[in-house]
Amino acid sequence: MCYESRSSKTLLRILRCLVLVSCFAASVIAQDLDQVRTASSSSVLRARAVLGLEGVAKNSTGELSIQDDALVFSRRERPTVRVPLSAIQGAFLSQEDKQVGGTPMALGRAATPYGGGRVIGLFAHKRYDFVTVEYFDSNGGVHGTIYQLNKGQGQVLANELGAKGVHVSGLRIDIAKSGVEK
């Protein structure tokens, strides 16, 4: 009797672990699928204007799209910024690894004992696409804007810009690799 209850408890524990693991796996897969779906079906891309966009603060999050021959960066309840495609001198696509979680995560990593923070750092990173757009403003001044997009979305934007006649260059090898991964 006692043996049976013990084995049932162990079974329950294993089941709980399995449920947790399967939930985590499902969420990760769903996230990936969602990213791929948005990248392929819609031209409205979630992006972060890291630097250099006129009238927009550093690291502002918004949506990037191409509308009526202009590259549009729109944010909630804030004025949209339109850059005419004819004013764009060139665009460059690149990829980079970034640590996730920002300052709170960095502090958490630093506070974790026995070098645990380093282990967390080893896994808490994500690859992003970066699109650098150089354009002229209405006065002829040069701007260099850097957009950060989810992995794979930079290629979508680069393709759309290329189709509209903008000169796009950058990590072709990485693009091919990401295509293979998908």
Binding site: V50, L51, G52, F92, S94, F130, T132, E134, D137, N139, G141, V142, H143, G144, T145, I146, G170
Partner: peptide, 26 residues
């Protein structure tokens, strides 16, 4: 290229912040 653009933009921003010049032009 993103580093080139970032250097350019950051220099423009920092020069404007420093208020050393009457105008900082691109």
């Amino acid at each position: 290229p993103e580093f080139k653009a970032a250097i350019y933009e950051n220099v423009v921003i920092e020069l404007a912040k420093a208020k050393q010049f009457s105008a900082v032009l691109r």
